[in-house]
Design a protein around this nucleic acid. Structure first.
Length: 423
RNA sequence: GUGGGUAUAGCGUAGUUGGUUAACGCGUCAGAUUGUGGCUCUGAAGAUCGUGGGUUCGAGUCCCACUACUCACCCCA
């Protein structure tokens, strides 16, 4: 075997890129409809951005980053998530000095995490994400959840469930941390090694542990929701009210924690059930102090990321078809002495905006027709000795078999006309 | 990172207790009388059996290592 794509990466082949483009179009429209404009940030950033932004106690930063020193001996990291880069960009370009809120989205942003590849989990994947800076109202949290939900719904995804939670703010979280640690301290012996670590560094994450032993220990743990300060409680209530008034189903799940440290108040996930179990397609939340942590003004913000590969997986597993465009509308077939006329016709058709091509492999007429059929071309336009002499072309509808001989200059119009008549 | 499974032409597979020229389907290409596709028929090309090592007179078949894929855990989109 020659050189292969690196572990955990995938090619999008010419025959399947239309599926990506289809999603991209829907995503752009959905984002634009709500006033989000595209931002493009670098694929790599200074490692410090993620250490400070995402949090250096997180698994992402501790063990999953593609980090290396460049030739100038700078520590560089390939983006392990989208929000930190967007926040850095927002801050660096002083966008907070413009009218707020500042809404932006990124599409097909490559995201890198050094993990064991698995179904729905690659080392390089792509995300569609939205970020809104400078607005504290829960109406934004709600609009983001609704946007993601309706987008997936429009794509045809079923069994979609929305799970939300509030993890409080720096004012109320410490008291909860205290309560949680008090609760956990007597049960430390029953926890796994990882969780004993988490107890010290980030006790919230213990709630998220999937090990049966830990789950059992944590079953009756206090809920953050009972410790929210008034502001956070109101905010969460506002969010729920917005979602209710829009009639989308959601569930409050106090165990949602998220693996990134910057989150405050709202966190949410959009999850679907597949044969392989629950799959999170979209995750996000509020990060009110990230911009400040990066050295900027203390501005609230919310956002989410949606995994493109995971969306495509869902569409596959639910049997949702994406319309596949034909490669050509017309295939020009010709006898070997008439290559020049055929070439001219192809160029003329393309000038008229018709996707056209011809044989470039010196194949027989019969083989040319076979090829035309295979590429899905709706029409064949044939030029032989007879047509060349009279300045005509024989246009054939490959579906019905109907053929018409028309002047060369009318080829394009004839194709349009025949297509219309067939409808 | 830890554990299980897999690895044979472009794709999907067969390959009997290790025994000679590795088989089949799909796909590709070419033909079935001279300028026409989809169906059918015929034929051809295409594989140092993931890589490296070992056992053996002999390995696609057994053993080890590596790599990749895959599943579970961890974590996440």
């Amino acid at each position: 075997m020659a050189i292969q794509a690196p572990r955990g990466t995938r090619d999008v082949l010419p025959a399947e890129s239309y599926r990506w483009q289809y999603l991209e179009e829907k995503m752009r429209k959905a984002a634009a409809l709500a006033g989000y404009r595209e931002v493009r940030t670098p694929v790599f950033e200074h490692t410090e951005l993620f250490a400070r932004g995402v949090g250096d106690t997180t698994d992402i930063v501790q063990k999953e980053m593609y980090t290396f020193n460049d030739k100038g001996n700078r520590s560089i990291t390939l983006k392990p998530e989208g929000t930190a880069g967007a926040a850095r960009c927002f801050l660096e370009s002083n966008l907070y000095a413009d009218a707020l809120p500042c809404k932006m989205y990124y599409l097909n942003a490559p995201i890198f995490r050094y993990e064991a590849p698995q179904s729905g989990r690659l080392r390089e994947h792509h995300q569609f994400g939205l970020e809104c800076f400078g607005a504290q109202d829960a109406t934004v949290d709600a609009e983001l959840i609704l946007l993601a939900y309706h987008l997936l719904e429009e794509l045809g995804v079923k069994n979609l469930s929305v799970r939300i939670n509030s993890i409080g703010c720096p004012n109320c979280r410490p008291s909860y941390h205290g309560a949680l640690k008090d609760f956990l301290v007597s049960r430390l012996d029953g926890l796994c090694e990882d969780c004993k670590n988490r107890y010290e560094r980030n006790p919230l994450r213990v709630l998220d542990c999937k090990k049966p032993g830990c789950k059992a220990q944590v079953k009756d743990a206090p809920s953050m929701l009972d410790y929210l300060c008034e502001e956070c409680r109101d905010h969460f209530a506002q969010l729920k009210a917005c979602l209710q008034s829009e009639g989308i189903p959601f569930a409050v799940d106090s165990r949602i924690v998220r693996g990134l440290d910057y989150y405050t108040k709202t966190v949410f996930e959009l999850v679907t059930e597949t044969d392989g179990g629950a799959l999170t397609v979209c995750g996000g939340g509020r990060y009110d102090h990230l911009v400040a942590q990066l050295g900027g003004p203390d501005l609230p913000a919310v956002g989410f990321g949606m995994g493109i590969e995971r969306v495509l997986m869902l569409l596959d597993s639910e049997g949702i078809e994406i319309p596949k465009p034909d490669q050509y509308e017309v295939f020009v077939t010709y006898m070997k002495d008439n290559r020049a006329e055929a070439f001219a016709l192809v160029q003329a058709l393309r000038r008229q905006g018709i996707r056209a091509d011809m044989d470039h492999c010196s194949r027989s007429l019969k083989a040319q027709f076979k090829y035309a059929n295979k590429t899905g071309a709706r029409f064949a336009a044939t030029i032989g000795e007879e047509e060349a002499r009279t300045g005509t072309v024989r246009v054939k509808d490959m579906g019905s078999g109907e053929e018409r001989t028309v002047a060369l200059a009318e080829a394009g119009d004839t194709i349009r006309k025949m297509r219309k008549e067939a409808e």
